[in-house]
Design a protein around this nucleic acid. Structure first.
Lengths: 153, 153
DNA sequence: TCCTGTTAGATGTCTGTGCAACAACGTCCT
DNA sequence: AGGACGTTGTTGCACAGACATCTAACAGGA
C-alpha cells in the first residue's frame, strides 16, 4: 500500500471512508425497499414530498427542490412528472418570474406522505440511530455538519 | 413535527441522517467526476479494480465481488463485461466449481488502477478527511463500524 | 441413481438519472 | 432601448442498474 503513504493517507482513513459508503448504501437500500413494499413509494419520491411538506406554502421552486433532494434538474423534472401523474404534486406558475415553476404538494400528496412517514422514520431508527449510542449521535452530528456543504458551495 | 415524536425521533436525529446522506452523495459525486475527467474511469469501475487488486491472486468470484462493491449480480455482470471489453479485467473458469467464474485483474487493469489511484485518494482526502479533524477520524471509525454490516448479515 | 432444492452467473426488459442542447425569460450594462 | 450573458425548466439521448427469469451445475436424501 505504498500509494496510500504517497498521498498521505493511512489505511485506517481509507477504511473509514469505505465504511461510510457501505453504511449509507445499506441504510438507503433498506429504506427504499420498505417504502416500496409498504407504500409503493420510492425513496426519492418520499423525500420530495417531505421537502415540500416542510416548505412554506407547501411549495418549492423546481431548481431549489432539485438541490434539496440531490437530483439534477432534469431528474427532478421527470420525478415531478410522475408525482403529478399520481396526483401527489401539482405544478404552479411563479408570479414574479415567468420562467419559474413551483412544485406544490397536493392534499393527496400530504396524505400519502403522512401514511409513509412512520415507515421512513422507523427505518432510520432501526437501521441507523439504534446502532449508535445516543451519546454518539450528538457527537456525530458535529462531524457530519462539517462534511455537509449545505452552508457553503 | 408531531410525527417525529410519535416514532420517538428528535428533529436532531433526523437532521443527522440527512447530513449523512448529503455528505456521502456529495463526496461520491466529486470522486466520480474527477475520475471520469482525469482517467475516463467511473467510480464503480475503479472500485472493482481496487477490490481485485487487493484480493489474493488478483481474482475474486463474481458473487463475492458483487457483494464487496455493493452491486447486484446482474449489475456486476454488465460492469465486468465493460471492463473486459477494455481489457482491464478477464474472466477465468473456476477449477473446483464449474458454475463459478473469477474476475481477474489484468496487467492493463492494474496499470490503469495505479494511474487513477492518486486521484481517488486525493479526492477522499480533500472532500472527506481534511474536513474532519484527525482526532475525529479515529473516533468516527468505531462509530461507523457499528453501522457497517460487513461483519454480520 | 434419480429427484429435489439451491446457487452461480448471464440475459431481457424496464425504470431512473445525468449530460448536452434548447427555448423562454430575466438581468445588467451601455 | 437593445444586446450580451446568465438562469430556469424541459427534452433527446445514452447508459447504468435492478428485478425477474433462465440455464448450468452442485448437494443431499430416498
Amino acid at each position: 500500500m505504498t500509494l496510500l503513504r504517497d498521498e498521505g493517507l493511512t489505511a485506517e482513513e481509507l477504511a473509514v471512508w469505505r465504511m461510510l459508503q457501505r453504511a449509507q448504501v445499506r441504510i438507503t437500500r433498506h429504506l427504499e425497499a420498505e417504502l416500496l413494499v409498504a407504500h409503493d413509494l420510492p425513496l426519492a419520491s418520499y423525500e420530495v414530498l417531505m421537502q415540500l411538506a416542510e416548505a412554506p406554502g407547501r411549495r418549492l421552486r423546481m431548481n431549489d427542490l432539485a438541490g434539496r433532494v440531490l437530483l439534477s434538474r432534469s431528474g427532478l423534472t421527470r420525478l415531478i412528472d410522475r408525482l403529478q401523474r399520481y396526483g401527489l404534486v401539482s405544478r404552479e406558475a411563479c408570479a414574479d418570474d415567468a420562467r419559474g415553476l413551483f412544485a406544490v404538494l397536493t392534499d393527496a400528496g400530504a396524505a400519502r406522505l403522512a401514511e409513509a412517514t412512520p415507515t421512513y422514520l422507523r427505518g432510520i431508527k432501526t437501521q441507523f440511530l439504534d446502532l449508535l449510542g445516543s451519546g454518539e449521535i450528538t457527537r456525530v452530528r458535529g462531524m457530519l455538519a462539517k462534511l455537509d456543504a449545505t452552508g457553503s458551495a
